[in-house]
């Protein structure tokens, strides 16, 4: 089903799957692993948190990461200032041995909306420090443009707030970002709840989507991961195929030439 050689670029890496997936909220570690495999994702997100020595530094999770053998995209979830995010990014780089970072700087805890000023400040500092920054942002065009101009080759606007499952709240804004930033790698980062939301994002020309809750909180996460995988592939193929122009008037698809029961009228 997937088009051959239709790879997506994240900085200097060519990646096969256009679905990025989180590792949180699954009913069990085994279901997490199976869901990630079912999604076909090549990139998984993860984080850093306080741990006591008894947890063995998350050694079970490390073993799972090793077994999965995916590209790691650590996030800065929970940070509220540029300084916090910058520090956490440096900690992630040492632990996960990657210069990729999913930059999140939250400005409001009610809807987990990113702080545009702090996000931009952190992005600039991290790019200067050699990071490949994947910034989580809103669908504000100017915010996205400024991140891109700062050197973020990947831009990740939300579809709607994290974990809401509301889908694409503002398709017009997202379409405009696609139009105005043709060379950016655009990823819908948050708010998707259904495979149809993912498909819509891909049909709009987004390069990829990033998911977590929609899969992890489904009754059957493994099957839902597969459903999202098909939706992403289908949406991408639709985008590449070029959709018909929308019309305001009905047009019969069966030819009217030779229609039965047709009578010439004088009106």
């Amino acid at each position: 089903m997937k088009a051959m050689n239709d790879l997506v670029t994240f900085y200097d890496q060519k990646i096969n799957s256009r679905l990025l997936i989180g590792t949180a909220l699954y009913p069990s570690p085994s279901i997490m692993t199976q869901s990630i495999e079912a999604s076909g994702a090549d990139i998984i997100t993860l984080s850093l948190r306080r741990q006591s020595p008894e947890t063995q530094g998350g050694s079970h999770f490390w073993q799972q990461l090793k077994d999965l053998n995916k590209h790691l995209l650590p996030n800065t979830a929970g940070c509220h200032t540029a300084k916090e995010a910058i520090t956490l990014a440096h900690m992630s780089r040492e632990l996960f041995e990657t210069n990729w970072v999913k930059l999140e700087v939250i400005g409001d805890d009610y809807n987990l909306q990113p702080d545009p000023y702090a996000t931009l400040e952190a992005a600039k500092a991290l790019l200067k420090d050699g990071f490949k920054v994947f910034p989580y942002c809103t669908d504000d065009l100017v915010f996205c443009q400024q991140l891109f101009d700062a050197g973020c080759e990947v831009i990740m606007p939300w579809g709607s707030p994290i974990g809401t499952g509301k889908g694409l709240m503002n398709p017009y804004a997202l379409e405009t970002i696609r139009h105005r930033l043709p060379s950016a790698t655009l990823v819908i980062d948050a708010g998707l709840g259904l495979p149809s939301h993912a498909m819509q994002a891909m049909e709009l020309g987004f390069d990829a989507i990033l998911l977590n809750t929609a899969v992890a909180k489904a009754n059957d996460p493994i099957a839902m991961a597969k459903a999202f995988r098909y939706a992403v592939d289908g949406g991408r193929m639709a985008y590449l195929s070029g959709a018909m122009e929308e019309q305001s008037r009905a047009n019969p698809s069966t030819t009217v030439l030779g229609s039965p029961f047709w009578h010439q009228t004088n009106d």
């Binding site: 949180a24 984080s47 948190r49 306080r50 741990q51 998350g58 900690m91 632990l95």
Partner: peptide
Amino acid sequence: LEILSAVQGG
């Protein structure tokens, strides 16, 4: 001090 290790994340 913050002493952190890997956890699942979205």
